[in-house]
Computed example of a mutant assay.
Amino acid sequence: MVQQSGDFNGDGRSDLAAMYHHSDGSISMQTALAYSSGGFAAFTGSLTVPASAAWKWDAIRLF
């Protein structure tokens, strides 16, 4: 799992993202948006790359 923070929805608050490499070879990114009152919403799926895309998990870098 790779974790990263950043303002993913442009509201000025730091959100969370996590990328997972699944046993079937697919890769998914989940995001949790920050509440204005503090804390985070539940993680939701925002992107899934199928195993057939042949992405190399160990070559992924989040900046």
Rank of each mutant, 00 (worst) to 15 (best):
Y35E: 11
Q4T: 02
A42I: 03
Q3T: 04
H22V: 00
D11S: 05
H22S: 09
F8V: 03
M19G: 09
Y20V: 06
G38D: 03
D15G: 02
Y35G: 01
W57I: 06
Y35T: 11
A17N: 04
A41L: 09
S28W: 01
M19Q: 11
L47D: 06
W55Y: 01
P50I: 04
G39R: 02
F40H: 15
F43H: 08
Q3D: 05
F43M: 14
A53S: 11
D15N: 03
T48W: 01
A42T: 13
A51H: 08
G6C: 07
I27G: 08
D24Q: 06
I60T: 05
I60L: 15
I27V: 12
V49L: 12
L16F: 03
G39A: 13
D7W: 07
A18C: 00
A34D: 01
T48Y: 04
H22I: 00
A17G: 01
D11E: 05
D24H: 11
M19Y: 15
S46A: 03
G38F: 04
D11H: 00
I27F: 04
R13C: 01
L33R: 15
G12P: 01
A54L: 06
G45E: 12
G12N: 01
W57K: 13
H21V: 01
S46Y: 15
Y20I: 06
T48L: 10
S52R: 07
T31C: 12
N9M: 07
G45R: 09
N9R: 03
S28A: 12
S23T: 10
G10T: 00
T44P: 09
A17P: 02
G25V: 14
G38S: 13
F63C: 06
S23C: 06
S46N: 15
D15M: 00
A59K: 13
